[in-house]
C-alpha cells in the first residue's frame, strides 16, 4: 500500500518537475510547480512529518506559487521562450542520461552518510504528545536563537522588498543601467 502510494506520488512529482522546466508557458510552469510542491507534502505525511506537510502547503503552495503567479501577471504571461530551439531529442537524451548518472552518484553518497546521531523523536512520542507540539517545544527551546534570527531575516526581507518596490528606487537602477550601457 505504502509503496504504491510512494511510486505514484514520485512519478507525479518527477513529471511535474520536468514539466516546470520544459514548459513554454510560464503560467503552466507555475501550476506544475504547485503540483510538485503538493506531491512533496504527501511524502512529508508519509514520513510522519504532518506539521511540515501542512506548512509546505501553506507556505509553498499558498504563498510562494501565488507570488510567482502574481509576478507573471504583473509582467505579462507572454514572457515565455521558444523551447523547441534547444529541446531536440538528442539533447533530451543527454540530459536524461546526465540526470540519471548524477542522481545515482548523489544517492550513493547520501546513503553512505546515514551514520547520524539517533534522536528521541520516536513515533511513539509523536503519537503521545502530538507532532506540532514536539516541533514547537524543540523550536522554542533548543533553537530559540535560530527562531529569533529567522524573525530578523523576515523583517529584513520585508524592508528590502518594500524598498525595492518603491517608485524612486528607479533612479538607482537607472544609474546602474547607464553604467552598464557605458561598459558595453
Amino acid at each position: 500500500m505504502q509503496e504504491i502510494l510512494f511510486f505514484v506520488t514520485a512519478t507525479l512529482c518527477i513529471v511535474s518537475a520536468l514539466g516546470v522546466i520544459f514548459n513554454k508557458n510560464v503560467v503552466h510552469s507555475a501550476l506544475l510547480l504547485l503540483i510538485n510542491f503538493c506531491s512533496l507534502s504527501v511524502f512529508y505525511l508519509m514520513l510522519n512529518a504532518q506539521f511540515l506537510a501542512i506548512v509546505q502547503i501553506l507556505v509553498y503552495a499558498g504563498a510562494i506559487v501565488v507570488l510567482f503567479l502574481f509576478v507573471v501577471m504583473l509582467l505579462g504571461a507572454d514572457l515565455g521562450e521558444d523551447v523547441s530551439t534547444w529541446l531536440t531529442g538528442w539533447n533530451a537524451f543527454l540530459a536524461a542520461l546526465a540526470i540519471i548518472m548524477l542522481t545515482l552518484v548523489g544517492t550513493s553518497v547520501f546513503e553512505s552518510m546515514t551514520q547520524g546521531q539517533s534522536g528521541n523523536f520516536t513515533p511513539d512520542d509523536v503519537a503521545k504528545y502530538g507532532q506540532a507540539q514536539m516541533i514547537g517545544i524543540t523550536l522554542f527551546t533548543d533553537y530559540i536563537l535560530a527562531v529569533q534570527l529567522a524573525a530578523i531575516l523576515l523583517l529584513v526581507g520585508i524592508v528590502g522588498v518594500i524598498w525595492l518596490a518603491r517608485s524612486d528606487s528607479r533612479d538607482l537602477i537607472l544609474a546602474g543601467k547607464a553604467l552598464s550601457n557605458k561598459t558595453k
Binding site: 514520513l47 510522519n48 512529518a49 506539521f51 511540515l52 546515514t114 547520524g116 546521531q117 539517533s118 534522536g119 528521541n120 523523536f121 520516536t122 513515533p123 514536539m134 516541533i135 524543540t138 523550536l139 533548543d142 533553537y143 535560530a146
Partner: peptide
C-alpha cells in the same frame, strides 16, 4: 529526520 528519529531535520 524520520529514519534517525530526530526532530532536528524538521527544524
Amino acid at each position: 529526520s524520520r529514519y534517525l528519529q530526530s526532530a532536528d531535520g524538521q527544524i
